[in-house]
Design a binder for these strands. Structure first.
Lengths: 212, 212
DNA sequence: GAAAAAAATTGAACGCATTCATTTTTTCAG
DNA sequence: CTGAAAAAATGAATGCGTTCAATTTTTTTC
């Protein structure tokens, strides 16, 4: 049996996270005051800081959930990619984009990106870039799979190109979060153009390259 | 003759910017207190806000100077690029990187990037991304020049690839500013690897493509 | 050159995230 | 069950960017 203390801790933790999540959704991250979150969670401000290191810590919890789900979905695409390189990259990146607004608003994404850049020595930043690296690795894995299958040229540097593609999809996503009026379709369309430009360069030579 | 008021205004403006720049360099942007800047500039806090909209505004002035100089230097590279695509891209991007720490510290760069992402409707953000766009445009211009000269394949989408390459060099630069121990040489080396991977794909076909 | 008008300066006050000394609650030994 | 020790909760205080009503300085008008 879990002790009283332990049970109360878990309940409060959940309560704070729920209250914060709701407030973030309603008024945005920046406008959500700590006292308001504490009050909604029926907890004092001091107690809030007993459970979370700071306001950003709340955001991190939500971002982690989001990216973990997206990584999971991405695995399926990497395991069984569409036939062409263009379709495969498009499918993977669309998976990322389409999921992006499930738990987070654009403003929350912006805040997360800003915090992760500004304070690199922070647990927030470390975790955020860990997640980023996992996504980039997934793009690279897709490229490797396409190479193994002969869909794209085998002499391309998959790791470097995976990083390049991830940097680009990330930059476009940043642009998306920075324009509150941009629909997801616009983002997807732009991404498609870049994917087309890149896959245009990745077609394998008609005859296999001589070994060595 | 300029009136007394006008002369004093110019003097104060300079004084504040000089004081801020010095303090940023000494203790960093975040640790530089507005009262300290005001005091060093021999001005009250209220007056500071009469001359600059906020703390970020000071940073913007310095960032603008930095990027404008780099754009100017970049023009020379675009006007007379090295012989190979790899050398040309390397030269342009090195120009950017090598200049980057002249006026700004890594911490100042991080802050600038974070602010520009977090508050997109701000003059800071608008200006920052204007400068970014100008840099990306310069990369595209270089690619176009290389296409015109036949150094890289003419059927590549220069605008899309310019954007992709800029996003990537930007992401690597962000990584550089986030690691206080990383020397410029490491950044340059990583960039070289990505440039090699990309230019490997950009070589023109041995025979010119048929028209149309 | 004095008085009125315009512009600029000033520092105390405000909002908000975070900290910390004090109080309350829970656990546990006997 | 009791009292001491440990853990957690609390809200007033702090630090810092920014605002604003009151004051001072400069310009203009006659």
């Amino acid at each position: 049996m879990a002790g009283l203390r332990e049970r109360q801790k878990a309940k409060r933790n959940r309560s704070i996270l729920t209250a914060a999540s709701a407030l973030f959704g309603q008024v945005g991250y920046e406008a959500a005051r700590i006292d308001a979150i504490a009050e909604a969670a029926e907890v004092s401000v001091g107690t809030f800081y007993n459970y979370f290191e700071n306001k950003a810590d709340l955001l991190l919890a939500i971002v982690s959930m989001e990216v973990e789900e997206v990584l999971h979905q991405g695995e399926a695409v990497v395991a069984a990619p569409p036939a062409t390189a263009e379709a495969a990259l498009f499918a993977l990146i669309s998976t990322y984009y389409d999921h992006s607004l499930v738990y987070l608003t654009k403003e929350m994404w912006r805040t997360a990106m800003a915090l992760s850049i500004q304070h690199p020595e922070t647990p927030f930043s470390r975790r955020y870039f860990e997640l980023d690296a996992a996504l980039a690795e997934q793009v690279t894995a897709l490229l490797r799979g396409l190479q193994a299958r002969g869909t794209i040229r085998r002499d391309a540097d998959a790791a470097a190109l995976g990083a390049v593609i991830f940097a680009d999809l990330n930059a476009m996503f940043t642009g998306f979060t920075m324009d509150e009026t941009m629909p997801l379709a616009t983002l997807t369309g732009r991404m498609a153009a870049h994917v087309a430009a890149l896959t245009g360069l990745l077609a394998p030579p008609l005859r296999p390259l001589p070994a060595g």
